[in-house]
Simulated assay, not measured.
Amino acid sequence: MAGGGGRTEAVTGHGMRIDIEDLRVSYAGRCVVAGVRLMAAPGEIAGVVGPNGSGKSTVLRTVYRHLNPEAGRVLLAGEDIRAMPPSRTARHIAALPQERGGDFELTVHEVVAMGRTPYKRAFAGDDRDDRETVARALADVGLAEYGGRRFSALSGGERQRALLARAFAQAPDVLVLDEPTNHLDVRHQVELLNLLRGRACTTLVSLHDLNAAASVCDRLHVLSEGTVVASGAPREVLTPELLAEVFGVRAVVVEHPLTGGPLIAVDQREVANPTAIPTANPTAVPTAAPTAAPTAVSAPVPGAVAGQES
């Protein structure tokens, strides 16, 4: 590889398939996830959702090799990632973890340029391809004019976008994003989710906002107490029964009036009573709001524009 800028491995242009098979991870002798099986097809956005403590972050950490499972394996295009050199997986998998680290006493450009490291020889400087890739990544996240600023001087949302730009600069085939909309205002949440839709990249993403997950994900995997309890298309998975059982909320699923996709409306007045789960026609929009109607979980509206285990 000359100059450290270009790729040396063939890329599909549509991402690479990720399979997680029979995953088991423990902390301090306590099993956190057990028997987890999930996948993301090439170019697909697969969401990992579940209550706090369900094991979402643990599963994602095994994909970007922050954790080694005690059993099971993670396959990248059919190959066990633990059999690959870290330098090779770094060219294919980029991550935006929840743990952001401390303040970087670097410029935003320098932080984003770290994403080019897997393609560079030791002590090699940036070439034109590197600089163009970094500039494009900054523009993608709305920080085109921020390259010369100190990373430590950015707001929480700006830091989040800069770190996402670093992942984009890595030019990965697989993106692993753990709560990427944290610290972002509504507009930037919507922009980020639209940006994910437009990238030819397999994506594994954990999201707390179920409406955001329903709007952006092709497939959802629902975790509860360290196991996968449901997988499939959002409309198939996000049922009132599952929302009551797994998330402990009383909710209905209706048609989004703007997008036609599923919209989860949660009753904010009380938690779920499993013996009295509301039902609703998932394809019908209520014509009149009843007294004290359930309120919709706040979520970015599709079509307009990343510690503790979660």
Rank of each mutant, 00 (worst) to 15 (best):
S215V: 01
G55R: 15
L60C: 02
P51E: 08
G5E: 02
A200I: 11
V141Y: 06
S155E: 15
C31G: 03
F104K: 00
G43T: 07
V205Q: 12
P300D: 13
V228Y: 09
A71D: 13
V301Y: 05
Y146P: 12
E236V: 10
G125F: 01
G15M: 02
P274L: 13
P172S: 07
D267L: 01
V305D: 09
T117P: 09
E105S: 02
P302E: 03
A40G: 04
H14R: 15
F151K: 14
L223A: 09
H66A: 06
E9K: 05
D103T: 01
A296E: 12
I93R: 01
G198F: 00
L243C: 09
T227Y: 07
H92C: 15
C217W: 03
R61M: 03
T8P: 14
R250Y: 04
V33N: 11
V174A: 07
D129P: 03
T227Q: 12
E241L: 12
A280H: 13
M16I: 08
V249W: 10
L243N: 08
G43D: 09
Q98M: 00
T295F: 00
F168A: 02
L154H: 02
A10R: 15
P180A: 08
A171Q: 03
A306H: 04
M114G: 01
V36G: 03
A144W: 07
L154P: 01
M1W: 09
D127C: 09
A296R: 10
D80G: 06
V186P: 14
S152Q: 14
R7G: 13
G72T: 13
N281A: 11
D173V: 11
V249P: 11
L96K: 00
E158T: 03
S26R: 05
P172Y: 06
A167M: 07
F123H: 03
D103K: 00
Y146R: 15
L195K: 08
P282I: 01
P85C: 05
T203I: 13
L96G: 00
L242W: 05
T117F: 13
P51Q: 14
Y64K: 06
A265H: 01
